[in-house]
């Protein structure tokens, strides 16, 4: 039997209902939006990148609890880290959500809760949506 609590764990409920960094960023150097055509959800990720480091990350979302929690956890996880590290993290999170590789739960820390979407194929895109926007933002020229 499936128990929705395996997906909606406490940490995701917390970040989904009371997201951190859910506000416009005053000084934006990089930004991108991502859409989920299945539901019409949309996220805007805004970054301040200085000296090859993500100084600050914030987001604005019209989305579900999973996407919101993922974005909240993401902005906490990437702030202050080198861009190269953040790009690597994008790949690791996306792979753990898609089920293409066994997640290194210890290395992912709080983000490991997102890997539960592996068992919910219809919701994988919800969890990876913020990361797709982050990846695109980092790939852009400075705005």
């Amino acid at each position: 039997m499936a128990d929705s609590r395996t997906l909606y764990r406490e940490i995701l409920l917390d970040h989904g209902k009371a997201p951190r960094n859910h506000a416009p960023l005053p000084e934006v150097t990089h930004a991108a939006t991502a859409d989920n055509p299945v539901c019409g959800d949309r996220i805007l990720v805004e970054l301040t990148v200085e000296n090859e480091h993500v100084r600050e990350a914030r987001f604005t979302i019209k989305g579900c609890l999973i996407a919101t929690a993922s974005a909240s956890l993401m902005t906490e996880a990437v702030s202050g880290h080198p861009v190269a590290h953040v790009e690597r993290l994008c790949g690791e999170v996306e792979a753990s959500c898609d089920g293409t590789s066994a997640p290194d739960l210890a290395a992912l820390g709080a983000l490991s809760a997102l890997a539960a979407v592996r068992d919910y194929p219809a919701r994988r895109r919800c969890a990876t949506l913020p990361w797709a926007a982050l990846r695109e933002a980092l790939g852009q020229e400075q705005v």
């Binding site: 299945v38 539901c39 609890l65 999973i66 919910y120 219809a122």
Partner: peptide
């Protein structure tokens, strides 16, 4: 307070198939 996708997922876990979204 709940997004349609989240509701639809909990319903699916209970074997109830609905549409959630736009």
């Amino acid at each position: 307070g709940l997004h349609a996708h989240d509701v639809a997922t909990v319903l699916d876990d209970a074997g109830v198939a609905v549409r959630g979204g736009d």
